[in-house]
């Protein structure tokens, strides 16, 4: 059984979802790459921010 940490799971999910979003939502390869990177940063960034918010609420 593959048992990743929560953060590894976030990174894997973000990588694959961002790849598909980038390719399907933009027309040219440079814009696909930039949009994919943008989605990846938003996925991972929002997970980190929400994690800190939940940590602070739980204290």
């Amino acid at each position: 059984m593959f048992t990743p940490s929560h953060f590894t799971a976030v990174l894997l999910f973000s990588l694959f979802a961002s790849t598909v979003f980038g390719i399907t939502q933009r027309e040219t390869p440079p814009r696909m790459f930039r949009y994919g990177l943008y989605c990846f940063v938003l996925f991972v960034g929002s997970a980190i921010v929400l994690s800190w918010v939940m940590f602070l609420i739980a204290r």
């Binding site: 894997l12 999910f13 990588l15 694959f16 979802a17 790849t19 598909v20 390719i23 399907t24």
Partner: peptide, 8 residues
Amino acid sequence: LAISIVCM
């Protein structure tokens, strides 16, 4: 696309 979806 194939790599991303199949891996996921």
